[in-house]
Write a protein that binds this DNA or RNA. Structure first.
Lengths: 126, 126
DNA sequence: TTCCATAGTTCATATGTTGCGAACTATGGT
DNA sequence: ACCATAGTTCGCAACATATGAACTATGGAA
């Protein structure tokens, strides 16, 4: 009877900048990470409900794995579901300012997109 | 007689965080970018001489292209060679603090690696 | 205890991306 | 006209990613 392989969490000194950048260069993973940064402990299906995206759960599972193995989040089973928390405190210690800068940049971009969308909306109406 | 397609430089508002993170998540591209941040105007083959790496020039060309199309560098032909400069001032305006944070993190990591290597060297000698 | 529902993982595979050698374009000098 | 230097493009192999189907894991209900 096959068992599921254990979750891999790299130790803080094995976390690389390349790994972090690659993990957060995907919009879905960036959104997951942002969500976790606000409401810690969110689960996979939880994220699906919150975001309006429609992502297959196998894909979502892989994204959580990518974040976990890049060292960005910690996942632990709690009953039937998987609680995920960011490892931002640890990472802030090793790479000060990196995560805040990335999250801020993502926010700037989201705000920009919002402005463009509103401008288009107005243009279409007027 | 076929011509070479023109270089693509995205306008500042088309530059995305995802694109920047992805471009700099590759160690070779991060090294190129770091080099350009110090000695502006460096060329492809210039980089090969400076770094001790041995990268095929076709690969290097693709890396420069990736950086260019992510909006991180500007390339222009100057005689027989291609001068590359970072677009850090523009990007700093759009995403304040992002590039400095990434470059600092890369430096932290390089310093860490140096310490580990020295420790190993000492252990082998003693 | 057996069965079921919910939550997530794994596997196979189709599709996308990247690395690199060979052949090409581009430019300046001889 | 030719050559050298600098870089680009092409084609293909190797690697990565997305996803449906089948699985594991856990807690509760019958």
């Amino acid at each position: 009877m096959p068992v599921m392989r254990p979750l891999i969490h790299p130790s803080i000194e094995d976390i690389t900048v390349e790994g972090i950048l690659h993990a957060l260069s995907d919009p879905v993973r960036a959104a997951i990470y942002a969500e976790l940064a606000i409401s810690s402990g969110a689960t996979c299906s939880n994220f699906l409900k919150i975001s309006d995206r429609d992502i297959p759960k196998s894909t979502l599972s892989q994204h959580f794995r990518a974040l976990r193995e890049a060292g960005l989040i910690r996942s632990e089973r709690q009953g039937v579901e998987m609680r995920n928390t960011t490892r931002c405190a640890e990472i802030e210690q090793r790479f000060p300012g990196l995560l805040p800068a990335i999250m801020t940049a993502h926010q700037v971009q989201a705000a920009d997109r919002m402005r463009v969308a509103k401008r288009r909306q107005k243009a279409a109406a007027g």
